[in-house]
Amino acid sequence: MVQRRPLVAGNWKMNGSRSESATLLDGIRKGVSAASRAEVAVCPPYILIPLTAEKLAGSPAAWGGQNLSVHKSGAYTGEIAGPMLRDYGCTYVIVGHSERRTLNGETDAVVAEKYGAAQAAGLIPILCVGETLQEREANQTEAVVARQLDAVLDRHGIASFRNAVIAYEPVWAIGTGKTATPQQAQEVHRFIRSRLAVRDKAVAENTRILYGGSMKGSNAKELLAQADIDGGLIGGASLQAEEFLTICRAAD
């Protein structure tokens, strides 16, 4: 039986002053154990990545970006390139988060291009997929998730997932306080793994699939107990050290 190492990644979104973030990072560093089975990472706003690198250097925790440009450099005001993230020690970068898809109009094709740019820069993409409430109510969950996955698979191939993470984020459960039941989440995670397995069973078995819909300390244990849920992409709960660490311990 494949033993996938759990990953708990905090997505801070557009939150945190320098002083607030320093306190948060100190708390995370203090609470993360090198003996932990679960891997821990945080993805702060770009401007806080240097502080994060400073605070977490030498600790078991990793860090990453929330987005990146498809370009390596150039006249792209306001953008951040993958090599820049790597230069500050980033391991991960979130790609295709639902907020980028809906608020910034990122298409499946753009997300696939960013996924490739991340890997070309030596970063591990955390590829986000998931359906809206309207799509779920119309029984389109699997069709939507398949479309989003296939855009990446068709462009970069199944082998690329040896160095990638997937995060299933039901859009209707992000920042709403609503959470998919463990059974609902497991069903979609199982579908994602089966979708990969059609192309390569071994890659599918080794790919980590995170749950990203309002996971918190109180529901993490039950969600993480599911066979195909390998960790969490944590939003609001990652802004409080003890709450975040509670999830990390549940993943352990």
Rank of each mutant, 00 (worst) to 15 (best):
S69G: 06
A35W: 01
P170Q: 08
T23F: 05
A53I: 00
V144A: 03
K221E: 14
G213D: 04
G58M: 02
A164N: 04
Q148H: 10
L56S: 02
L233N: 08
F191Y: 13
R37H: 09
D252L: 12
N219V: 10
G122N: 09
V95P: 06
K72M: 13
T141M: 05
Q134F: 01
D200H: 01
V152W: 04
I49D: 03
V70E: 15
E187F: 07
T107N: 08
K114T: 11
E137K: 09
V129F: 11
M84S: 13
A173C: 12
S160P: 05
D150S: 14
M14W: 15
N219Y: 05
A250F: 03
R199D: 02
K201Q: 15
T91W: 00
L196M: 00
E106H: 09
V93R: 00
G58S: 03
V145H: 04
P170H: 01
P6M: 08
N15R: 11
G64C: 06
A75I: 03
N67T: 08
I124F: 09
I94G: 00
H71K: 15
E242N: 14
C128L: 04
I209V: 15
L133N: 00
Y92H: 02
L7S: 01
V110F: 12
R37I: 10
G157D: 10
P83L: 07
F244C: 00
A241R: 04
R101T: 01
D150N: 12
